Simulated assay, not measured.
Amino acid sequence: MAFMFRAASVAIFLLLPVHAIVAQPASSQGFHSRARLISGGQQGDVWLAGIEITLDQGFKTYWRNPGDSGLPPRFDWAGSENVAGAEIRYPAPDRHEDAAGVAYVYGKKVVLPVLVRAKDGTKPVRLALAAEYGVCKDICIPARADLSLDLTAGGQDRATIAAALAKVPRPQALGAPSDLAVLSVEPMTQSKPAFSVTVRAPEGTKPSLFAEGPENWIVSTSVPDDANRFTVTVEDRPKEAAAAVPLRLTLVAGGQSVETEVSLDANGLPR
C-alpha cells in the first residue's frame, strides 16, 4: 500500500506544470537588500509591473549606467510565460562621488517600472526574472534574485508603480522652451574630445547631468563650470566609430528630469 501511495504521488508530481514545480517567490532577500516583483494591473494593452529593490541603511545600488565604478544591473526574463516583451524604465539616479570616482546610484529603495506586453492577450501572463545588481557601501558586492509573479487584474501596487513612472526622465528635444532643458552642446578644445553642455534649470535648484554613450564609449561629466554649464569628455571610444553616434543626456533638478539625445561624430564631437 505504501508503495502504491508513493507511486501515485510521483505520478501527480510529474503531471504538475513546470512553473508549479520550480516557481520562484515574488521577493528574495539578498546581500543587504531585498528584491521584489510587484504588479500594477493592466493599462491599455500593457501590464504594469515593477522591480523593487530595498537597501539597508547606508547601502546603494546602481543605475543602468553605473558611472566610473560599480556594477550595472542585469535582468533576464527568459523564463517568463506569454510575454512578448518587458521594457524596463529607469527613474533618474543620484550622483555619488568618493575615492573610487563618480557613480550613478539609487539609495534606500528604488522601483524600476516594467511595461509588459503579452503574446496572447487572452491568456495569463507570468513573469520570471533572474536579476543581478550591485550592492555597495565601502565595496561593491553582486547580489542575485530569482523571482516570479503572475500578473493579475487587481494590481495592488499600481500607485507605487505610477509614482516610479513619474520619476522617469521624459524625452525632450535639444533647446526645448521648458524650465528644465538641455539648451546647447558646443565642442571644446582639449587633449580629449570634449564639449560643453549648457542647460536651464529652475531657479534655486542644483542640476545634475548624466551622459551615456553607446557600447564601448566611455564618457564622463564634470561638476558644473557655473550654475548651468557642464563639461562632457569622451574618455575612450572604438577606433572605428560610426559617422553618427547617439549620446543620451539626462538632466535632473528640483525633482524633475528630462532626457535629450544628441549626435556625435566619429571623433566624439557634436555634429
Results as ranks from 00 to 15, higher is better:
160 T>D: 13
86 A>M: 12
130 A>S: 13
111 V>H: 03
256 Q>W: 07
132 E>L: 14
59 F>Y: 15
237 R>C: 05
146 D>K: 05
53 I>D: 03
221 T>I: 10
60 K>W: 04
12 I>D: 08
218 I>W: 14
4 M>V: 15
32 H>E: 05
241 A>Q: 00
209 L>S: 04
261 E>A: 10
266 A>T: 10
260 T>Y: 05
101 G>C: 02
31 F>D: 05
212 E>I: 12
78 A>D: 12
239 K>L: 14
253 A>K: 01
265 D>F: 04
202 P>Q: 06
32 H>L: 00
110 V>L: 04
32 H>C: 01
227 A>L: 06
76 D>M: 08
117 R>Q: 15
231 T>A: 11
176 A>Y: 03
123 K>E: 15
244 A>D: 11
94 D>G: 05
225 D>M: 09
106 Y>L: 00
154 G>H: 13
211 A>L: 14
122 T>C: 03
247 L>I: 13
85 G>F: 13
20 A>Y: 07
97 E>P: 00
145 A>V: 06
254 G>P: 03
47 W>A: 02
107 G>D: 13
138 D>H: 01
58 G>V: 05
130 A>C: 01
105 V>K: 09
229 R>M: 04
11 A>M: 13
46 V>W: 13
163 A>P: 00
9 S>V: 12
92 A>C: 09
89 R>G: 00
142 P>R: 04
259 E>F: 00
190 Q>H: 03
119 K>I: 15
206 K>N: 13
154 G>R: 13
151 L>W: 10
191 S>N: 07
46 V>Y: 14
269 L>Y: 05
75 F>H: 08
44 G>F: 09
159 A>Y: 05
244 A>S: 09
34 R>G: 07
261 E>M: 11
90 Y>I: 06
245 V>M: 10
9 S>K: 07
214 P>D: 01
207 P>G: 00
94 D>Q: 12
8 A>F: 14
27 S>M: 06
230 F>S: 05
271 R>T: 11
126 R>N: 06
58 G>F: 05
244 A>M: 08
188 M>N: 02
249 L>R: 01
136 C>K: 02
82 N>W: 15
123 K>D: 12
251 L>V: 08
98 D>K: 02
138 D>M: 01
256 Q>C: 03
251 L>E: 03
150 D>F: 11
67 G>C: 11
80 S>M: 11
85 G>N: 12
49 A>Y: 12
230 F>Q: 05
161 I>P: 01
252 V>N: 04
112 L>N: 00
136 C>Q: 06
129 L>V: 14
226 D>H: 05
158 R>S: 03
118 A>P: 00
253 A>H: 03
97 E>V: 15
236 D>H: 04
250 T>W: 07
270 P>L: 09
19 H>G: 03
124 P>L: 08
252 V>I: 15
116 V>W: 14
191 S>V: 10
258 V>S: 02
207 P>H: 02
141 I>Q: 04
202 P>F: 11
47 W>Y: 11
